[in-house]
Design a protein around this nucleic acid. Structure first.
Lengths: 209, 209, 209, 209
DNA sequence: AATGAATGAGCGTTCATTCAT
DNA sequence: CATGAATGAACGCTCATTCAT
């Protein structure tokens, strides 16, 4: 049923309306995503209301719905942004290493992954909360796993190691790394260096000739 | 991996702005009314938003408010168009009959009314939805009833029939016709011929010397 | 997405909670329907919010939704109540006349219908606003038309009149009466007596041997 | 026809009150937990209301709150049940192997873990949904990791393998297994045998002298 | 112990209308 | 003339929890 009073009709008391600032869609969208990200981290996903988001972004509620059909849609946009950033950093780290030294490339991936994850786990938690088990595979995880699997396959072809199944190995390495870093975070240990050393040694065992 | 507040890639695609076409006011108005009519019929009045209308008409939202002060105003314009059409058809049918044969003139009116209504009931429903009971009398209904009452009065003066009250008779004839045709529509019977036959007989009884 | 704060959690400021009155479901339901009816008449259907209804009924909002799944559901219940009442009054009027005098039975129906409608048209408008055209046939209208058609058929079998189609006649009589009374209401003429006299004469013409 | 406020017939059917059955607390608790588990799996945690649970368990709402202070408490109880079952199965598998053959003990653990997870992943998803990232460490995961770490430490002391850090190794093995099995589930491959073979080979590389 | 009517704060979403460009 | 980003008041509905019986 429709609203009883005509929206947009003159308000009972004249209040100074908010100054209207017209911004390019792209900029507004980004402001909104960032406001949402900050609040999701600080208060959690469910506890953050659309009112909170628009208040922080300094716009009216309608503006939010001008850009996102649904509260859940901001999360989708945020996840996209997050994953692309993760992949870009890992790729940069790998490419900084000569593409003939496969163990060094893996270690570069490992260090980038550990430190990026340690630096952003709070956002990570928000962004993947609903995806870990439910869907088990997401475009986002596939992007990351695919990247690592490609690295492993390149090493395999070059004879750097001998893996029965590159995708499965990528999963063990990624999720193994994830689990160890999660445990470190829970223990309050946020320095990547010792973790990387230990993981290089432990995970390196899987990458044997 | 981005800080939460970092501006990133925009998830909203840049759109090529619509080509701006200047059109004569009457044409624009007509496009908008027709777009609205189609949508009102397809989805209902309340369910059709101004956004829907401008999307279908291929113009921007502001353009709508150049031509109509209010969403309700399109409906008013549509109602006008509809009623004039109805009256014109009825008038044409009546005038095709010699103005001395009053029973034949009534039957001509009846056939025109039944078939016009059957052909347009979906638009009729939209256009009169809020008028049937609420206001009980509208300029539009009065136009139609006045037309029929005039026909009845002419017959009365010529001694073709004897009615205590021409307006009341017009109402009984018009609403009686309406009710029977509504029932036929609900039953899926959209052919005017059998309805006209039956109504001529039934309603003719009111028009007796 | 779920509410961010746990409903039922202690409110920030302790306010004296409303005294809880437990009532039989039937009684609560009826109070709610009546509150809704009053408000629908006074302010219209759309303009009446669920908040208005519960405020008038003196209960919490949740109580409303304990009994009705939807705002529209109260209207359904109200329509039911209205129609049963209309049919009951018409039946009582008919049955007060010897079942051999068919014209008198019809006139009894007519007087009951006109005066009941005149006395309740505001509620009628609310209750049937969305049904008149849209659905064209409703359980409720069918109930009333069926009742009148039965009366007409009884008279037909007894030879009191000669109708080609009892249902169609019932529709003409009912909707004809409706249209004339609507016009009278619009003209501010709420006294049933003159209307009944005129309608008896006019509609009686349809009921001829 | 009724005045708007007249009490009328109740549209709510009178229900026969449910027969009141007194049951031992433990039985009631178990019924409720099982009802909740079924619904959590079928519809998700958030989408399952306390009303749903009591409806399925066939008790009144108040009864639920006799046994659980909070909706979240059922989930806690369910998690407890789930984890104890998992640990018990793993323990049974390990103990069926001579405690001198450490690699075989690990493989026994692996097979039990994979097949138990594959058989129960839907319940697992529900039960750990909110724990995976948020808290990163739970009593429940610690129980499982502790069990595996103990196995690894025993092998370490016996010289079966040489690990820098038993807990970290347990995490890599457990989460690595988890990731590979999740991927298999997503691919619709629910047979444990091929997974176990591949994982024995891949994870076995970590357990080297 | 068991019932089920009652509570109410809270939230996501809608959409007619305005106005800077 | 035309555009479309921005506004914001309003509303229906949810559901965990309480408590009189």
């Amino acid at each position: 049923m429709a609203a009883a009073t005509r929206p947009g009709a003159a308000p009972v008391e004249a209040r100074a309306p908010r100054a209207r600032r017209v911004l390019p869609a792209e900029v507004r969208t980004d402001h909104l995503i960032s406001a949402a990200a900050d609040l999701f981290i600080a208060q959690g996903l469910e506890a953050t209301t659309v009112d909170d988001i628009v208040a922080r972004a300094g716009v009216a509620k309608g503006t939010f719905y001008h850009y996102f059909a649904t509260k859940a849609d901001v999360l989708v946009a945020l996840r996209e942004r997050f994953s692309q950033d993760f992949a870009a950093r890992a790729a940069a780290a790998i490419e900084a290493v000569p593409d003939t030294d496969h163990p060094a490339r893996f270690n570069a991936w490992l260090r980038a992954a550990v430190s990026t994850y340690l630096a952003n786990f709070r956002l990570h938690d928000v962004v993947f909360h609903d995806f870990t088990h439910d869907r088990r595979r997401s475009r986002e995880k596939d992007m990351v796993i695919g990247q690592l699997a490609a690295l492993l396959e390149a090493g395999q072809e070059a004879g750097a190691w001998n893996l029965p199944n590159a995708r499965a190995a990528a999963l063990v390495l990624f999720d193994g790394m994830h689990g160890v870093v999660d445990d470190a975070i829970a223990a309050g240990q946020l320095d990547p260096a010792p973790l990387c050393g230990m993981l290089e040694q432990m995970l390196g065992r899987i990458l044997v000739r």
